[in-house]
Amino acid sequence: MPIWTWFGLRAGRGTTPWPRAPGPDGQEGVLGLPRLDVTRCVGEPGSCTDCAAACPSGAIRVEHGRPQLDYARCVGCQVCTEVCPREAFATSEDWAFGVRDKRDLRADGSPRDTTPASSPGGDAAQEAELAAQIKSFGRSLHIRHVDAGSCNGCESELQALLNPFYNLHRLGIFFTPSPRFADLLLVTGPVTEAMREPLLRTWEAMPQPRWVMALGTCATGGGTNGGGYACYQGLDGIVPVDLWLPGCPPNPAAIIEALLVLLRRRPQRVHGGRHAS
């Protein structure tokens, strides 16, 4: 009869010090969402639409003859990086895509600094209100998760947050069974018609102030799975969203970063469709 406690102690500490101290985030080699450098897209404007035609989720549109990328719809399949004859799309390790304003997920690919939809500071009045709300939570956060039609990839990564490597509890963030105790509603999936009502009822059952996070590309913009006879295109028009995190699925470190962005314990990395290095 093994003495599990002994084996557990012998195994030692598996938890990474990241993000509170330098250490591995566990995402070595993980491909993020692609980067767009529109200056490489030379030639007659509109003469090449290979990227938009190949994109399986409608994230790329050619406007004024040049491609634009909406990360809210990007599933990170990397097809655009393979079909572009001029390497305007490149693979990257950019995955910390949590943003407060969805417009920050739109990239027109220009190399110059675009005017961000939300400046890092944001609107002053809104900022003050949010700061007050966060203060009322202290630094802790309780999350109610609702699966509104995901492929289970997002759930797999959310469950990973509780494994010994990420050990989310150490950051004061907990999952709670009851919406009555929850500060944050975390939604995955494109929202199926059958889940629309249960999702709304969960949201209504939460005390205020409450926040909503759209997790995964299905929830932020429908991705490949939204639409059709059974599905919507994510949370737009269904519940108000405070934080958008695309990714298919977002990896556990990306989820941790996004939760800390929400709590103002970490700066937002993506502005105007550009990911800070």
Binding site: G149, S150, T192, A194, T224, N225, G228, Y229, A230
Partner: peptide, 10 residues
């Protein structure tokens, strides 16, 4: 089937 997304039709 709360999660039926109609994937085959996709």
């Amino acid at each position: 089937f709360y999660k039926h997304r109609g994937m085959e039709a996709r």
